[in-house]
Simulated scan of single mutants.
Amino acid sequence: MSGCVFCGIVAGEVAAFRVADEPDGVAFLDTRPVFAGHVLVVPRVHLVTLGELPADLLPGYFALVRRLAVAVETGLGAGGTFVAMNNKVSQSVPHLHTHVVPRTKGDGLRGFFWPRTRYQDDTEAQTYADRIAAAL
């Protein structure tokens, strides 16, 4: 898609520190990493949200994400990884992308800075569960 920086990276028109370039997607270093080695994985086709990813592309795309999560941990000697995706809200580039962030114990990252809450009671929790299940 014209004007999309991630499409430009996929096409080789925009420079990036590539980690993987495969039929199922392209992975490259985030230019503003949470921690050094923070990788973004994008599908080759321009899609904005996970909901737009065709079912036939899911296995290959998420297999690549899984492989990157293992490679980031192994290659960097990280204690683990944080794998995340935003859909619309907080999506700085409107192209589907998955973050693979290396983690180490005591690195200071606290739940990716998400405020945590509690349900008022089990009834409220069940109501939310039911609404999501009904939407499936």
Results as ranks from 00 to 15, higher is better:
Pro94Arg: 00
Thr81Ala: 09
Thr74Tyr: 03
Gly79Cys: 04
Leu76Glu: 15
Arg110Pro: 01
Val93Phe: 00
Gly77Ala: 08
Glu73Gly: 05
Val101Met: 02
Val83Met: 08
Gly77Lys: 05
Arg110Asn: 04
Gln91Phe: 12
Gln91His: 12
Leu96Ala: 07
Phe112Tyr: 05
Thr98Asn: 12
Gly111Ile: 02
Pro102Thr: 06
His95Asn: 04
Phe113Thr: 14
Val100Ser: 11
Thr81His: 02
Met85Trp: 03
Gly80Ile: 05
Asn87Gly: 12
Ser92Arg: 13
Trp114Ser: 06
Val83Ser: 01
Phe113Met: 10
Val89Tyr: 11
His95Gln: 03
Asn87Val: 01
His99Ile: 08
Arg103Lys: 15
Gly108Arg: 12
Thr104Asn: 15
Gly108Ala: 02
Ala78Tyr: 03
Leu96Lys: 04
Gly79Ala: 06
Gly106Ser: 01
Lys88Ser: 11
Gly75Met: 06
Glu73Lys: 15
Phe82Gln: 14
Ser90Pro: 01
Asn86Ser: 15
Ala84Cys: 08
Thr81Asn: 03
Leu96His: 03
Arg116Val: 12
Gly111Ala: 02
Ala78Ser: 05
Phe113Val: 06
His99Phe: 14
Gly106His: 07
Gly80Val: 01
Gly111Met: 05
Val93Pro: 00
Leu76Pro: 03
Arg103Gln: 15
Val83Cys: 06
Thr74Val: 15
Leu109Glu: 07
His97Lys: 10
Glu73Phe: 09
Phe112Glu: 07
Arg103Asn: 07
Val100Gln: 09
Lys105Ser: 00
Gly108Asn: 14
Val89His: 14
Asn87Tyr: 09
Leu109Trp: 13
Gly75Phe: 02
Gly80Lys: 08
Arg116Asp: 11
Lys88Gly: 02
Thr98Val: 13
Thr81Arg: 07
Val93Met: 07
Phe113Ala: 14
Arg116Cys: 11
Leu109Cys: 15
Pro102Ile: 04
Arg103Thr: 15
His99Cys: 08
Ser92Asp: 09
Thr98Ile: 07
His97Val: 14
Gly80Glu: 02
Gly111Glu: 10
Ala78Asn: 10
Trp114Asn: 09
Gly80Trp: 08
Gly106Lys: 01
Phe82Val: 06
Ser90Met: 12
Pro102Ser: 07
Asn87Gln: 10
His97Leu: 11
Pro94Thr: 02
Phe112Gly: 00
Ser90Tyr: 14
Glu73Tyr: 01
His99Asp: 03
Val83Asp: 02
Gln91Gly: 14
Phe82Ala: 04
Val100Glu: 08
His97Phe: 10
Met85Pro: 00
Gly79Val: 00
His95Cys: 03
